[in-house]
């Protein structure tokens, strides 16, 4: 098997997914978890775009369409997660005002 650019992209996408998974599992901070999920999503998008070019001259439009909608959905889920994070932070600050300067 020769090393083609598509192969590199695909493996990079998989590696990004696993790196993001590691961040999701290992980082205790919520903001880092959100960022890790975004890294995972980027890996999935890269992988999907790569396999769209997979077999033969025809480019498969179905994975491309999934990436298009997936990007928009990942933006909205990130926004929802960040709103949750802000709310958690507010509640923590309210319960323990002395920690308020602790940054987020």
């Amino acid at each position: 098997m020769t090393v083609s650019p598509a192969l590199i992209y695909g493996l990079t996408g998989l590696a990004l997914f696993v790196i993001g998974l590691a961040g999701l599992l290992l980082c205790p901070q919520l903001l880092r978890k959100i960022l890790a999920v975004n890294v995972m999503a980027s890996g999935v998008f890269l992988f999907l775009v790569t396999i769209a070019h997979g077999s033969g001259a025809l480019i498969d439009p179905v994975p491309q369409a999934m990436v298009l909608t997936g990007i928009v959905v990942s933006v909205s889920s990130t926004a929802a997660a960040l709103a949750l994070l802000c709310r958690i932070r507010e509640n923590a600050d309210r319960r323990d005002p002395s920690q308020q300067k602790g940054g987020r």
Partner: peptide, 10 residues
């Protein structure tokens, strides 16, 4: 099963 859907879409 990795043939993809390109042909069917076309």
């Amino acid at each position: 099963s990795a043939a993809g859907l390109a042909a069917r879409v076309d």
